[in-house]
Design a protein around this nucleic acid. Sequence first.
DNA 1: TTAGACTTGTCAATATTTGACAAATATAAA
DNA 2: TTTATATTTGTCAAATATTGACAAGTCTAA
Lengths: 109, 109
Amino acid sequence: MKQSFGEYIRKLRTEMGFTLTQLGAKLDLDSANLSKIENGKRDFDEKRLKKMAEVFNLNFDELKTEFFSDLFAKKIYESNCSTDALSVAEEKVKYLKQINVKQEKLNLK
Amino acid sequence: MKQSFGEYIRKLRTEMGFTLTQLGAKLDLDSANLSKIENGKRDFDEKRLKKMAEVFNLNFDELKTEFFSDLFAKKIYESNCSTDALSVAEEKVKYLKQINVKQEKLNLK
DNA sequence: TTAGACTTGTCAATATTTGACAAATATAAA
DNA sequence: TTTATATTTGTCAAATATTGACAAGTCTAA
């Protein structure tokens, strides 16, 4: 879990004995671009997460966790932001969900 | 800290007695677009954080925390991702910083 | 050396974000 | 009420960013 998302894909891919071209085909992705993704030079596209979970038989929610945590970590690292943002974000997620509940109740009326 | 970034700006703006147009001018931003930002219909652009900190005399790092936490929370909410991603992200930030240290040592040689 | 695997650079196509403006609505003072 | 100002909403072209694709390079193992 402490690796980057690119390293994670590479690990999974080599464990399965796939080449970049083979996995690329499964994910509908150019091997050159997949190489960049594994090397952290491009971002993996969220829309391919579902397919990736299927290919590697992974739990989709755990894969999302892996994917988004990478996104957040990179943002924090690049922007030199405090990791406090992470705990504040947790509060804000609660806030957003709460707003949503209120909204749904209103919509029922 | 439990409000959205848009609500936060609005609170600061009204406390200072600024109109959208007045604050917009200070931030080099159309009043209509600032309105959308405050109402969560557009995103505040990271490049204006510095100026915003100056205008409201805020600590830049704290403002960044406020800004990025909002970003993360929205992502999690929209994508229905587990908040586990936040703690995993913390680990990944450590990992990225560690990699960087190793890289710097290599560059010295 | 050759074939296959991987990497890197580039660029047009596509998608997203932004700035700007007009028009509608809300608010509040005269 | 009318009027002035503040705010909201819709739209759209321009600016940016991302993506897919391909060529050409390096690396590796037989």
